[in-house]
């Protein structure tokens, strides 16, 4: 499916910004979490990585950003290339300096620091002058105006939605070319989720930042994504453009909650899915 979309370009397609090839990840040298995962993110794309709890979505992101290292995880097979250079199993700080920033799951603000201090810390990878720093701050405040009015407030006391905006805005301070977002909708009200996803689309549109988006909420993710992958039990089981995924019966049924018949889901269907899942997994 993915090949088809790339072949529409008559000349040879440019190499993707991020390419994950046949990656296998183990924790503590033995616990196998990802098996043969391959995915790409092109320049300027939003790519969704969908899947349920424990499918390996977060591990995929952390293996790209090398943050698995602090959890004794390691890429044991395969390669990860970011703008034509290998980045797997390296110092995460180097990855960030190259322009790849992960926003971790669960709104990890520096809670004893103010909103603005959080943002300033995140400018660490770029050697910014005072003016450049101020310009970067204004850019983030332009995307999330609420942060501007709370700039001197201690970030631990912001609401969940504001904290999510802060961690996304904070990642922008490093001027990333690729942003990895881990479940930005987690634990937030539908209205806030809509607002945050609008901002994510805007970051992609206006700043040209490519985005790899991990989500359980397939509906909101596919709303803004150009392409997507479905991860189950540490393997990619499905991939395609937004339209292909939205049209896929299994995905509709099990991730979007719309059954083929339009009626209530029966246990029979789920049983059929379980069988299928064993097959694919």
């Amino acid at each position: 499916m993915q090949q088809a979309s790339q072949n529409t370009n008559p000349s040879a397609p440019p190499p993707p910004l991020l390419s994950v090839t046949n990656v296998e990840v183990r924790y503590q040298g033995s616990i196998l979490v990802l098996k043969n995962v391959s995915l790409t993110v092109g320049e300027g794309e939003i790519v969704a990585l969908l899947g349920s709890n424990g499918a390996g979505k977060t591990t995929t992101l952390k293996s790209i950003s090398s943050l698995i290292q602090s959890e004794e995880g390691e890429v044991t097979e395969g390669q990860i290339f970011f703008s034509d250079a290998p980045i797997h199993n390296q110092d995460p700080v180097v990855t960030v300096r190259r322009g790849l920033v992960q926003v971790m799951e669960g709104r990890r603000v520096l809670e004893h620091m103010s909103v603005e201090q959080n943002l300033i810390v995140a400018s660490a990878p770029i050697k910014a002058s005072r003016q450049q720093l101020n310009a970067a701050l204004e850019e983030v405040y332009g995307i999330f105006p609420i942060l501007s009015s709370f700039r001197h407030r201690q970030s631990g006391y912001l609401s969940g939605g504001q904290q999510q905006m802060l961690v996304i805005g904070r990642a922008l301070m490093a001027k990333p070319r690729l942003l990895l977002l881990d479940e930005p909708s987690l634990g937030l009200s539908p209205i806030i989720v809509t607002a945050i996803f609008e901002s994510i689309a805007r970051i992609n549109r206006e700043l040209g930042t490519s985005i790899l988006l991990v989500e359980q909420n397939a509906k909101v993710a596919l709303n803004i994504a150009h392409r997507g992958y479905v991860l189950e039990n540490g393997r990619i089981v499905m991939e395609g453009t937004r339209e292909e995924l939205l049209g896929n019966e299994d995905l509709k049924e099990f991730y979007l909650g719309i059954s083929a018949s339009g009626g209530r889901r029966s246990f029979k269907d789920i049983k059929q899915y379980r069988r299928r899942r064993r097959w694919l997994g």
Partner: peptide
């Protein structure tokens, strides 16, 4: 962990 994820 947060510091590292921000490139510090």
């Amino acid at each position: 962990q947060i510091a590292r994820s921000l490139g510090v």
